[in-house]
Design a protein around this nucleic acid. Structure first.
Lengths: 202, 202
DNA sequence: CAAATTATTGAATGATTGGTGAACAATTCT
DNA sequence: AGAATTGTTCACCAATCATTCAATAATTTG
């Protein structure tokens, strides 16, 4: 046989996680087994267990990877915009964009949500992620509010409200968007959100 | 042994579905097997397959049952309120209430959402249910709008908005509500929704 | 009461599951 | 070069899975 090319943990681990993610999209949480991931990658199942002791670890590693990407990707996008009004617009536009909604495959997204109901470790990770996002918005909104770019009474609730609407939108796209493009209702939601933020309605 | 008490399909089927629901809450979609449902009910696994040919059928039957309950329970609550303003208030209060959010166990709720990504039959059922709710709100909002109880430009989008916010709230309770009671942020969301509905903001 | 139907259990199926521990191969360390 | 470490495969395990078909028990029908 052509020489087996060994890789090291640094390369193999992400490769396995990527394979896991792919299989997850196609097969779902129930249908995804270590065996399937292995055959999708053309490696032996035991190799996966060699790197990630057990399935729970594998799952947590993927979630951590996803969250890491989510954070870095979105955070870096806005930090360089100096002008507050501009940054506010860019931020809101991003949150209600199709691109944002597809940061992670929505099927996988929902799958891990669901997992969090029965897996305390998963729940912790997701809570942290959403709290991180909420707190990020909170910090930004504090600035926007002090500069009159938005007008809200309760900045924390305003941040909560945006995250809530953003997640509701994810759901809307799945069950009510159906025939129409994502952007259509997203625009409506965004305008409503802006109205709430700008008129001391929260 | 004491005489085995046979039941007929009309009694046994709901009993199995109830058992399925219970096991689902505790074990999740991945952890729920026909065997576990059977032992939870103290019956033989084959009996479940006798009534529901296969697992897919069982799943669909439970979803249909849930949706049926959901519809009848909520619909009947408001039809008897003649006064439009009163009915509007009651309707909005219900939608943003803890009770409403717990109509179905949120874990099971999310689980079937998730299923809908990979199971076309499940997806159809859920779309129908949410469209039913949206259309119900639409019909009501038409009346409220013509009577000036609300003031909206696009009644359909207003209905979509309420459903979206309602579902976002479900999510918020799970990931951001955490330490605080459901009602607290629900009240904020409700007030924002009311502001949007009453001031031609949608 | 007998026959037909329905409810229920039983035994067995092959497939798949996550996981273990040892072997073998490649790479790195000394 | 030899030892140690790391990467990878292999053979195997008990458990569990959904599903099947036949057997038995209760109930309904004729």
């Amino acid at each position: 046989m052509a020489g087996r090319k060994n890789q090291n943990a640094e390369l193999r681990k992400p490769e396995i996680l990527e394979g896991y993610y792919r299989v997850l999209i196609e097969e779902g949480l129930e249908g995804t087994s270590i065996g399937k991931i292995a055959s999708h990658l053309g490696i032996h199942p035991s190799l996966i267990l060699h790197y990630f002791k057990n399935k729970e670890n594998l799952r947590l590693a993927l979630i951590e990877l996803m969250i890491g990407k989510f954070k870095s990707q979105h955070l870096l996008t806005f930090d360089h915009i100096e002008d507050d009004a501009e940054r506010f617009t860019a931020l809101i536009n991003m949150i209600f964009s199709y691109k944002w909604s597809r940061t992670v495959d929505p099927g996988v997204h929902f799958g891990f949500y669901y997992q969090s109901f029965r897996d305390a470790n998963v729940a912790v990770l997701f809570r942290e992620m959403f709290q991180w996002l909420r707190n990020y918005l909170y910090d930004e909104f504090l600035i926007f509010n002090s500069k009159g770019i938005i007008q809200v009474n309760d900045v924390r609730k305003a941040a909560d409200f945006i995250v809530t609407l953003m997640e509701g939108l994810e759901f809307h796209a799945q069950f009510l968007g159906h025939d129409k493009p994502f952007a259509e209702f997203a625009e409506t939601a965004k305008q409503s959100a802006l109205a709430v933020l700008k008129n001391k309605l929260i």
